[in-house]
């Protein structure tokens, strides 16, 4: 049913180093990205782009962010079985929502990609609503300030982001593929086994192993 644009090798190549993450966009955009991230020192270039939008409605920053994330959001939605035309529209809405909600972005709590993932996820859930356009811009759960956390908890949040990223980069392509199917598509393990032509036991152990590695990295044991 859902086409799998990730057949072949899942992309884990772009995980090392901030610039490499943006390998999908042109040199000019990368350059503007670099300059933005120099101006706004923070965790990742994409974080800086959102902050630039929040602080001075920076259209160049928006363009760079769009070029990088819109095709990924579209790919993610197509993976979930959303028809390509609607996936394109939702990806547009998601990035426009990023522009409108940029002031609510707090890089201490979430990285740009996690924040955009939440926006895209919620938009997809809202796609059945009649007032979908309004839904794209009204405050939702992901905007609500979290209940106050201790400074330690906030620091841990940011560390967790980095570590999940690092750990994911170290998984084998096969592990990432299985994880992606199980997480995004909520495929029953038996279905994943069928799709990939693998024994059920192999799929189960891959998912278990992948999650265990992520957790080990998270607890600083890896």
């Amino acid at each position: 049913m859902a086409s799998d644009p990730n057949d072949g090798a899942p992309r884990i190549d772009g995980m090392h180093g901030a610039t490499a993450q943006f390998a999908g966009i042109g040199p000019e955009s990368v350059e503007s990205l670099r300059s933005v991230s120099r101006r706004v020192p923070t965790g990742s270039p994409a974080d800086g782009l959102i902050l630039a939008i929040a602080q001075r409605r920076d259209r160049e920053a928006f363009a760079a962010l769009f070029e990088h994330f819109a095709p990924r959001v579209k790919g993610y939605l197509i993976r979930l079985g959303v028809p390509a035309a609607q996936a394109e529209e939702l990806a547009q809405d998601a990035l426009v929502a990023v522009w409108r909600k940029a002031e609510l972005f707090d890089p201490a709590r979430a990285s740009a990609s996690t924040w955009i993932f939440r926006i895209a996820r919620n938009l997809r859930l809202d796609a059945g609503r009649r007032d979908r356009t309004a839904a794209a811009f009204e405050p939702d759960l992901s905007d609500a300030p979290d209940p106050p956390e201790t400074p330690e908890a906030t620091a841990l949040t940011r560390q967790r982001e980095e570590r999940v990223r690092r750990a994911l980069a170290e998984l084998t392509p096969d592990q990432v593929k299985v994880l992606r199917l199980s997480f995004f598509q909520d495929c029953p393990h038996s279905e994943i086994a069928e799709t990939l032509g693998l024994p059920l036991g192999t799929v189960k152990s891959r998912i278990r192993l992948a999650l265990a590695r992520l957790r080990a990295e998270l607890e600083g044991e890896a």
Binding site: P5, N6, P10, R11, I12, G14, M15, Q21, G24, R59, F62, A63, F66, E67, F69, A70, P71, R72, V73, K74, G75, Y76, I78, R79, A84, A87, E88, A91, Q92, L95, V96, A110, S111, S113, T114, W115, I116, F117, R118, A120, R121, T157, R160, E161, V164, R165, L168, V176, L179, R180, F183, F184, L214, R215, L218
Partner: peptide
């Protein structure tokens, strides 16, 4: 939060599906 971070990291490494021509202009 851990699973949302995983969602973000998986989005970051998602295979891009090219947007149609003029998508950026429409967004702007």
């Amino acid at each position: 939060g851990f699973f949302e971070s995983l969602g973000g990291a998986l989005l970051e490494t998602e295979t891009p599906a090219p947007m149609s021509a003029g998508a950026l202009d429409r967004a702007l």
